[in-house]
């Protein structure tokens, strides 16, 4: 089955924070915890770009690797989830995560850290689907309702796409081809460098003789 992924189109994101609000509202995330954030690069400078960031549900997730109580698991759909009953709130996952996804609610006085909370790809957690326990600990389980994450579905410009990596990549590729630009902003070129002014495709590998 699918490998669920998010993809944010920096050409389309208008920093409206609709995804952040949708997430907060959908799961009633407490004050001080942000499962999703919008990050703007070169803010205020012409050509600024924004992307929406949350847990990227890594294929080889560093949070899973460092957790001392092994409370993380990956679903068949490639969604990285965790068991809050097991989490000790140590914060190792926060240090390991390159996206700052793990969040820690304040659990008492003196800044005491609570159990980790993060984006669940709207897939709930290890409790009975649609149960009160699942709702309280992990938020709504939209995948079990046949829906996609609220942030992606609420995105007004459809900058944020969520779903099977292959499908999402196809939607984005089709979009880039239609509008004739965008791959240089977010994709191969941003990761590996692009020729100047270029949205050209990376050079083909030399043919083997």
């Amino acid at each position: 089955m699918a490998r669920m992924k998010f993809l944010c189109d920096a050409e389309r994101c208008i920093e409206c924070n609709g995804c952040v609000t949708a997430c907060k509202q959908e799961h009633e995330v407490p004050w001080g915890v942000n499962r999703r954030r919008v990050v703007t690069i070169n803010d205020g400078v012409p050509g600024e770009r924004s992307i929406s960031v949350a847990c990227m549900h890594c294929s080889d997730a560093p949070c899973m690797a460092v957790c001392p109580v092994d409370c993380f698991y990956k679903t068949d759909e490639g969604v990285v989830l965790h068991d809050k009953d097991l989490c000790i709130g140590c914060g190792y996952c926060f240090y390991a995560c390159p996206f700052g996804a793990p969040q820690f609610p304040q659990a008492g006085a003196f800044g005491l850290r609570g159990k980790m909370d993060k984006c669940t790809f709207c897939a709930g957690g290890p409790e009975k689907d649609h149960s009160e326990d699942e709702w309280k600990k992990y938020g709504r389980n939209r995948l079990a309702e046949g829906k996609l994450p609220a942030c992606a579905e609420m995105c007004s410009t459809k900058a944020l796409l969520g779903g099977d990596g292959d499908v999402v990549a196809d939607i984005y590729r089709n979009r880039v081809l239609k509008r004739g630009r965008g791959a240089e902003v977010w994709g191969w070129s941003s990761a590996y460098g692009a020729p100047k002014g270029g949205s050209q495709a990376p050079a083909a590998a030399p043919a083997k003789s």
């Binding site: 092994d70 409370c71 698991y73 097991l86 709930g124 957690g125 649609h130 079990a144």
Partner: peptide, 18 residues
Amino acid sequence: YQGKPDTRPYENAPGAFS
């Protein structure tokens, strides 16, 4: 993984909000 087992999203009927 040391936690509780989780159900798959298709193991239950979609529910009232589908």
